[in-house]
Amino acid sequence: MKDAHLDGAPPERARGGRPELTNAALGAAGLAGFLALCEAVPRLGIVSAEYFPPVSRIADALVGELGDGAFWTALGDTLTGWALGLAIAVTAGVLAGVVISVVPYLREATASTIEFLRPIPSVALIPLAVLLYGTELRSVLLLVVYASFWQVLLQTLYGVRDVDPVAEETARSYGLGTWARVRHVLWPTALPYVMTGVRLAAAVALILAVTAELVIGAPGLGARIAVAQTSQAVPEMYALVVVTGVLGLLINVGARTVERRALAWHQSVRGEVAV
């Protein structure tokens, strides 16, 4: 087994100096090329600058946004919806997952319901949210929680199912009670899966938070994008889209870092359970 890796690795490494360094340089070059392309395409008139302003104008607009207090309020609103929704979904998802796994027959009894409710697109709830809560934060939370709850719940369920029966029986034979077993056997096994669920849920929560703002008009970055669109402020709109992208990127990177940190001790090679 080892031979193949060792034999396979050197030729690839052989070409450049330090691979990480070269990769970073190549990545930076790629990014620079992408930005240059986005600058050139409208300037050369390939695409109308009215639809697709050059990067420099988007950057100007972005600077303008960053100097605007309303922008920061909107960013704060979006992050509030995201964080609150995610926190509720994670708490509820983990609790429900553990309870469903621990109580006998509950897993079988809930399986069909979960299978039915999970694929229901959360945006189906938009009209309901509008009627019930209007443009309040609760509208956003309804969508965010519904969408991200399933990610956490399912990963928790998968994680608990992964508990080694031998470990479980050992704990039982030493007379550990239900709570002690949950704490010392079930939770450590399930934790890596839960963290994966949190990472997936964090991304979904942002998507739904922005969607709710965009479609319903709840205050936040999404609503600001909608306003920019209706008022034909195209560069501002692009700038805001870039901000949501950066936000998404930070959330992804952050969630991955937390996941890795929290699990540095964990030996198991765990595949992400496909949902």
Binding site: P10, P11, R13, A14, G17, R18, P19
Partner: peptide, 9 residues
């Protein structure tokens, strides 16, 4: 001979 990063094997 494998030529690696700053080393030859």
């Amino acid at each position: 001979v494998y030529e690696g990063a700053g080393r030859r094997v």
